[in-house]
Design a protein around this nucleic acid. Sequence first.
DNA 1: GGCAATTCAGTATA
DNA 2: CTATACTGAATTGC
Length: 614
Amino acid sequence: MLALTPELCNVLHRELAPSPDDDPFFARCLRQSQLRLEVLAASLRPPSSSAAAAPLARVLPPPPSLPPQQELQVRLPQEPGAGGGSNPSGSKKRARAATEVVRATHLSPADHLRYRALVRRARLTFEALRSSYQRQETSSGLRNRHDLRASSQMLSAGHWLHREVRIVGDIPGVLVGDAFYYRAEICVVGLHTAPQAGIGYIPGSLLDEGHPVATSIVSSGGYLDDEDTGDVLVYTGSGGRQRNRVDHHADQTLERGNLALHNSYLYGVEVRVIRGHDIDQGPHRKVYVYDGLYRVISSTFGPGKSGHDVCKFKLVRLPGQDDLASKTWHTAKLLKESMDARIRPPRYISLDLSKGAEVLRVPVCNKLDDDRSPLLFDYIVHPEFPVPPAHAPVKQHRGCYCATGCGSKCRCERKNGGVPVYTEDETLVMGRPVVYECGALCGCPMTCVNRVTQRGMKHRLEVFRSNETGWGVRALDLIQPGAFVCEYTGHVVVMDDQPGSALMEGRSIIDPRRFPERWREWGDASAVEPNMKRRQFTKLAGPGYVLDVSHKRNVACYISHSCTPNVFLQFVLRGNEDESFPHLMVFAMETIPPMRELSIDYGIDGEIMELMGS
DNA sequence: GGCAATTCAGTATA
DNA sequence: CTATACTGAATTGC
């Protein structure tokens, strides 16, 4: 007989975590690393014989290793030994733009993961700052540029990535398909350098050849002569146009960015392409997606549609990269449409794993093999927590009395330390030991801001078979950071039920207490913004249960493990629910593009244990 | 080093 | 709701 000790509760089923090293990013980074070499080889062949051999670039050094703890930490600007003088928050002097030109090749998979962690942390910081600035009341009349405030703050605190080098080609840690809501955020991770300008380039003064060379462009379709079929992009140069206007009023010239892009053509230098798309959800109506490396195959100058002269550059996507976002997003859209029409796409083994129980259908896709195992489980939408025994003292009414929405005066809000838990667009403001939502006894309606997770899933997910992770979950919708994703459910096993009657050999157990406190990473910008004191929350006594997912489970059980996760677990209590039985709620901690796999930190690094028959 | 010029943003207002 | 006004920030290159 087995006692239900925490160690034993850490047991995870094989299919949930195929191996301790398993990390979706890991496998993919490996693949990308090989591609990068091919890409580099291709880019070293200049198309025109007159041009010099391919220029520039040393090799990017391996990334600094991150401290293991999860807390956000101030990363001081890279200062080699002495000099420089440390740059504590207030100093106005900023590090100069870098003078060293570098390509990121020959990075080991471990390097890729470390860079991914850096990028992830920079984006978490940006989002924390941005969202807190957005919530701050804007002083009268002034436009609230929370995005710019966040990025400048990070720049002066030394938190922009890759400030010490100019990178040609891929930015390590940024994956093809990564989505951003603001131009400022793109600058923070080093994908692009200009806050507004479309062409990012290295000035000629930094290169031996003496000519400026473009390394990145942002294409938002702002010019008349743009043409875009995905793999082939005709990009119009800068100038001759009023800001925010489409029509030209003057001729363009072959200077600055235009000249640099022309040189990229001559030298055969690869260019990062970021596309801007109009969308109807999210913090503002726009999203930018990194679409990978392109190469300029022609550069022309002459009259455009307006009659004025324009520079036109034809770019072709380099082969062997991950699928183009526009393509991926389109397949996601088709899938959703076909789902709505109840037509089962090929190789889908179910249109709805939950059989109607979930607010949104959860399709299951297996394009790899004959495994149909997800269909064998009972789907359970909500965990069944034990009802308190009848002889327990009758709890007094602990809900709030808000008739409409719950604001600052709401007693549930006060339980949360007086800080609102969710924003108006239903994203989590800050991770905490436990979130108190309004509950059954509260006077507020279901539409209350403080009932976000009770309204169920808002973003479509699908369960899919993959080479890297066995079964996994991916998003079909674009999910914005902080958004509620789904609940983690299974059969509730009360810990008091010792000794072991409930636990039998071979059970798959999820122990809520074993998840690392990744919520600490969400919404905390105290490392960069000293005014934002790190909040001290009262700790929740550990949950008094584990989930047995051997027979009953839901989508969440198929989420893969990663040490650079894009979703995290947040405990949630509603009204006066028993504190030993918090709900396990999954929230997004990144901007998750459609068809991107979800990953969560199960806290199993290198110490997975299996419960075998005795 | 200082400073003007540049820019496929983003927000608020009519 | 779309057009327009206007502030904005980092870089480049003089």
